[in-house]
């Protein structure tokens, strides 16, 4: 695969451990074990791995929701740890499974929170525009979060993440809590926005099928290390090693089984 000439985001030997609460020998659990890699501007990168593989921890070092113990994260060449966390985060979109809409604010206020923090105000037109990006009409602006469905809430979450015109969009299991239909629709929408808004997107997921369908580069993590760094196409052709291939095998077998069932029954 082609190596990025200048990376927007670069991890340099990033390492982070947590004090172990499970093991008895008071050891530490290494969550991220010396990761180095670059993310090119404009790429859509999926970070895939089992629970506890360190993918979320790695993602959160970017917007400083969790700083590494050692190593550096460079955003456009600058160490993110040199920036004040609040200022840094206003430049980075962040969408996560819990959504975290502010329950005491209506949709418009939730979407406009980023500009408000910087001392400006998102106009009604801007709110409508952002709602339109996530395929909701302007009538949603005055609604409260508890009046919305799970899918609508995450759409608002995406709109909120985009309100500050970020270059970089971080997503941590963004569709994990949604029903499959909603998940599929919102996934496609986010992929389209990625292109439309010239975003660089980094998405954490444990679902290899989702990664294969949305991303143009897939990093597979296992025990804090990146064990595969491939395009979806090359993964499907068998590259990336045994761990990556075991993950790819699941959706492939499901697809094959479904195709077989359709063939056996014949056309409906």
């Amino acid at each position: 695969m082609d190596q990025p000439s200048h990376a927007l985001l670069e991890f340099v030997n990033v390492r982070k451990a947590f004090a172990s609460t499970v093991t008895e020998d008071s050891a530490v659990d290494v969550a991220v074990d010396g990761v180095s890699c670059g993310i090119a501007a404009g790429s859509f990168v999926a970070l895939v791995g089992a629970s506890g593989s360190g993918k979320s921890t790695l993602l959160k070092t970017v917007n400083r929701l969790g700083d590494p113990d050692s190593g550096q994260v460079l955003l456009a060449g600058d160490n993110v740890q040199d920036a004040a966390p609040a200022m840094l985060r206003r430049r980075i979109g962040y969408v996560f499974q819990g959504v975290g809409l502010f329950p005491h604010m209506n949709v418009a206020d939730n979407i406009g929170i980023g500009p408000r923090l910087s001392g400006t105000r998102a106009s009604d037109g801007r709110i409508a525009e952002l709602l339109e990006l996530v395929e909701l009409d302007g009538s949603y602006a005055g609604r409260m979060p508890h009046e919305l469905s799970g899918g609508q809430r995450q759409r608002i979450g995406v709109a909120r993440a985009l309100a500050g015109n970020p270059q970089l969009l971080l997503m941590d299991e963004p569709f994990g809590a949604l029903d499959p239909l909603t998940r599929d629709g919102l996934g496609k929408r986010v992929r389209a926005l990625h292109g439309q808004l010239n975003l660089t997107t980094m998405m954490v997921t444990h679902d290899m099928a989702e990664a294969l369908l949305l991303a143009d580069r897939i990093l597979v993590m296992e025990k804090g290390r990146i064990v595969a760094d491939e395009t979806p196409r090359s993964l499907l052709k068998g590259a990336g090693g045994p761990i990556a291939q075991a993950m790819v095998a699941v959706p492939r077998e499901q697809a094959a089984a479904l195709a077989q069932m359709a063939q056996l029954d014949g056309p409906a």
Binding site: N63, L65, P85, A86, M87, L88, R89, R90, Y94, F96, G98, V99, G100, L101, F102, P103, I113, G114, L117, S118, R160, G164
Partner: peptide, 23 residues
């Protein structure tokens, strides 16, 4: 308080004071 809401408050770039005041 909902952990997700607090995480969102940090993630959208609230300072400690803004988080206290707004959320």
């Amino acid at each position: 308080m909902d952990a997700g809401v607090l995480e969102a408050a940090d993630a959208v770039g609230m300072t400690r004071w803004q988080k206290l005041q707004l959320v």
